[in-house]
Design a protein around this nucleic acid. Structure first.
Lengths: 210, 210
DNA sequence: AATTAAATCCCCCGAACAGGGGATTATCAC
DNA sequence: GTGATAATCCCCTGTTCGGGGGATTTAATT
């Protein structure tokens, strides 16, 4: 028996969900809320295995509710159940700590399948959501293509610059003259097309060179 | 009819896959390769809708093969089909451009389901893979908690610094005296516990303030 | 009414940096 | 063996920065 909580402001949908889950026999609905105001109390009392959470609700919205619950009860898993399939909502839900993301247009049988899958240790999400997550992941983690032909030594020095060190300090660390570091830095500037330490550091981060 | 290519070095498995897909009636296997050496030629000739790609293969490995195909034929979708479920392999596959990631331990019927789901526009992945992707996504995108109590103006100026601008330029841009900018920057240094432009810029990026 | 904080500006001084010019040595490619 | 490149160092000059003092105005908080 998997204990489950529901938070959904649409009464008709909430009751349907409750019936669907209860009748399935594998779930016990331990709370069923119209809004998220009492979510912390209810979670503390019933400690459900998972919570089905709507996003658009009066009062506290679903994403805020996820943050609240995850902060106090990180073991409770939350699955978003919503009509929104825009990247922004998905992104913020995942960041808030949601373990899954299902669209309301899902067929009841598929919903039960997805939940069963989740209890087995997987993240439930429709294919279209998974695609979006993959794409966001890809974008967020874009690697640099150009390395600006920096030599090994230049890269080391650039890294030292990103640690906020002065030429003098960098020179002392590797037993070189400050003038040597200065020469290297000049070359770095040419290669990166910048004209100052801070600009070089900024470019190093923006282009993910370091 | 969905055209599909298979790249898998295990002959028994490859033949089984071929039979499974052909017998289903919805797929036409247009090529079935033991390794990825001729993948570009085969893809060019047959232009399959999707490719099922093993990772561990003699010669070119599956992830490299994904990069090759995606570079020349970005429209062809590739689904990894592998025994590996470590984060590293998943991560590199997604980055290479794979549209899905299925584990070989999947049941044949589920495989057909996942592929059907994919053709409908979704990413096929088992729940456990989806969980991993979500977690990696969360980690990669960790936000900063502390904002170091920077005021709005200070944040603006810090952002300008990350563009490599000098005090003079920043001042000119907003019709202020360079001394004003200097004062603000002094305060920024105190709040960030740094003592130079480049260190401030570095901290701004590292702490994801900007 | 008094206090605080933010934003604006000013001066001084020494240190650090930017850009320009060099020089030498060593290694590697052609 | 000539040329190119990387790495090491030097000098000079002017600019920018960093840290230390200030000051005034405005808005908000108490």
């Amino acid at each position: 028996m998997t204990t489950i909580g529901i938070v959904e402001d649409n009464d008709v949908l909430r009751n349907s969900l409750e019936m669907l889950l209860q009748n399935n026999g594998n779930y016990q609905v331990v709370f069923s809320l119209h809004d998220a105001r009492t979510i912390l109390e209810q979670t503390e009392i019933h400690m459900p295995r998972l919570i089905l959470m709507d996003i658009d609700m009066p009062g506290i919205n679903g994403i805020e509710a996820v943050k609240l619950v995850k902060k106090d009860f990180p073991a409770v898993d939350i699955i978003m159940f919503t009509v929104f399939e825009d990247d922004e909502k998905i992104f913020r839900s995942v960041m808030a700590g949601a373990s899954g993301y299902l669209l309301k247009k899902i067929a009841p049988s598929r919903l039960l399948e997805a939940l069963a899958d989740f209890v087995q240790g997987g993240a439930p999400m429709t294919g279209s959501i998974a695609t979006r997550v993959l794409e966001m992941f890809r974008k967020q983690t874009k690697q640099t293509t150009a390395n600006f032909n920096l030599s090994v030594k230049e890269l080391e020095i650039l890294t030292a610059l990103t640690e906020g060190k002065s030429f003098k300090v960098i020179a002392a660390e590797r037993f070189l003259s400050a003038e040597t570091i200065k020469s290297h830095v000049k070359n770095i500037y040419v290669k990166l097309h910048v004209h100052s330490k801070s600009a070089a550091v900024a470019k190093a981060f923006k282009e993910k060179i370091i």
